[in-house]
Design a protein around this nucleic acid. Sequence first.
DNA 1: AGATAAACGAGACGGTACGTCGGGTCTTAAT
DNA 2: ATTAAGACCCGACGTACCGTCTCGTTTATCT
Lengths: 203, 203, 203, 203
Amino acid sequence: MVKAPNAPRRRESSRLAVLTATRELCEENGYGRLTIEAIAARAGVSKMTIYRWWPSKGAVVLDLIDEAAAVTADPPDTGDLAADLHTQLSEVINLLTPQPTSPVTGVITEAQYDPDLARALRERLIEPRIAKFKDRLRRAQEQGQLPVDADFDVALDLLFGPIYHRLALHLGMPDPDYLDTLITHVLRALNPPPHRLDGAATA
Amino acid sequence: MVKAPNAPRRRESSRLAVLTATRELCEENGYGRLTIEAIAARAGVSKMTIYRWWPSKGAVVLDLIDEAAAVTADPPDTGDLAADLHTQLSEVINLLTPQPTSPVTGVITEAQYDPDLARALRERLIEPRIAKFKDRLRRAQEQGQLPVDADFDVALDLLFGPIYHRLALHLGMPDPDYLDTLITHVLRALNPPPHRLDGAATA
Amino acid sequence: MVKAPNAPRRRESSRLAVLTATRELCEENGYGRLTIEAIAARAGVSKMTIYRWWPSKGAVVLDLIDEAAAVTADPPDTGDLAADLHTQLSEVINLLTPQPTSPVTGVITEAQYDPDLARALRERLIEPRIAKFKDRLRRAQEQGQLPVDADFDVALDLLFGPIYHRLALHLGMPDPDYLDTLITHVLRALNPPPHRLDGAATA
Amino acid sequence: MVKAPNAPRRRESSRLAVLTATRELCEENGYGRLTIEAIAARAGVSKMTIYRWWPSKGAVVLDLIDEAAAVTADPPDTGDLAADLHTQLSEVINLLTPQPTSPVTGVITEAQYDPDLARALRERLIEPRIAKFKDRLRRAQEQGQLPVDADFDVALDLLFGPIYHRLALHLGMPDPDYLDTLITHVLRALNPPPHRLDGAATA
DNA sequence: AGATAAACGAGACGGTACGTCGGGTCTTAAT
DNA sequence: ATTAAGACCCGACGTACCGTCTCGTTTATCT
């Protein structure tokens, strides 16, 4: 960024044009082929306007993701823990793979070399989802569906890990049935064997 | 690539200089900041020489990974399944993070945009390790340490997933204690409790 | 220019701030490095205000010159023609080079590309001085110090030409001694020798 | 310039294309509107190629002038001093005003802010002409057409000054008749009055 | 041992995109 | 209604790498 632009004088039409152009270009060529130059041209906006409001290409795309992700915001709670986890996992899968090349994975990659972007990514995209995930687990715990000493971090790793596993290796995302299998296994892992249930869980 | 160079006249010293320069630059700036120009300069090699033998930047790094992967020792089998899994997971973690910025980390993350690279990565680096992992599980199964219907793919996902999870989100790799916790959970997930499963745990 | 501002509501403080900033920046970086942006910033004035009142960068500098030119004293007439010419030439030299980099120098050199600026420059700065110069020559002529057919345009060219010559070629201005030499030569050129001209000199 | 390109590997066709494009663009829009971007586009050459071989826009134009000026290289010596001076002055006038806006005046202007360019301009364009001018005067002096103490610097100023005088003030260049008048005056200035010739010139 | 043919270093080249600067126009708020 | 502030579109700047393309010059085989 050049200097503090701090102003409510920002022109909303430019902001929208940039985001729209970015979305289109991402869909057409993928995040990897995206350039500021092209965004500016497509949006009918000067490059300076982009640099004034966004520190990097990744930041523009992050704003884009924000808008898309905001739609599916509210955490589900149907009472059926497995089903709700299935819903949350599906949402992440859809976010990561709307098309063959998702802007989200691009931003994740770029964040590796851009600490500011990485922070924004965590704060705005990742941590809220983790929080909701743990909220749901906590409610299940309160209702006795999970032991009091269930390790939520492990649950997070075990359930979301496979998604990134496949993402990294360029494999297809898990289908719903496999998701169910995963969830079943993980819930079983969180619940110690029944013959020790009383002793272990209440300790 | 320009034309088929097929020749045993290739100069080994140039090959090594390129790989060494690439490794150094990766460690210094990360894979994302790597340029052919810089490799050529550091290696004292002409750009043409690089383009003659490698189709892309990713391919050079892949050769680098090959070297790293070749070091792999034989799969451990001490009789203690949990300990052996721990060893295998640690080896992968060390491969991915010998330094803060590892070429391997970068090439895996970046493989999102290069399907060829991703495939080569799977074939040369990932699948051999998966095979060894499943071998070990199979032996454990034969010795009655795992049920006959244990799902090895799920085991793979649950154990390796967390590593990629952290890789993608640019978090630190799990420490040995946490690895133990993970393995304990996963083994528990693979071993369904002998009875009372429905009522107590997954309901 | 944007639109006719015709208003006596113009704020004098802004006008002065612009002129002062322009003078300072000219002296610091030279006319060629002058930017409207920098003038506005230094003057604490918006760019719009500058564009409203001056059609171009050159016009601002021209106003500056006007101020400098207004200082001009009355034409000297001490009775000594050579001394008076020396005085007039020195005044022009001082106007052009009060500092190493003078706004006037720059605007004259740059006037090549702005006919309007060049015309304004002639009318406001140059021609008044030419008029005074010719006045002085005319008085000398009336007093018999110059022949009745002395060519004043040639005199103008010969006396002022060397100044522009050095200006164009970015050389230092003539010192007083050299000025005397010049004037001596030119007066000699205007006064044809009473006899033997053909035979001795120009043959 | 970026780094030392020192190479006879320079492609002559590119050099010519750049100079040709520069000439055309100068003629079409004038030196002031000339941009490196446009030269590169018109010449079908990358910007880097221009920056590699020329330190600035002015340097390109200077090369252009060099070629044009090299044509009229040899100093005239017909035995008629006045006529030869006329020829030399005309050549300079033509160089400065081939069209309304000459590249030469542009380079002269730019040289004010670019010491390197100014030096190149002096060495390659100005000083050779001054040398030839003084050569001619020296020959005339040896043949007794000028006094032994004739001041060549003054002669230079008086003869070339008027050209720059008019150039600076955006006036038309002197016509041949006026040139003759000027030369006559200057030669007269250089020749002290006949009745003091012996005493003054030999002193 | 000399010839020959490929790989090689060097780096010029046409491109594309970068991130920055300044030009000149336009809008908003405040004085 | 002028002003300060500054966002905005535009065009050019000078730079970094890209991948291609010569140039001689090694260097390693094959006569």
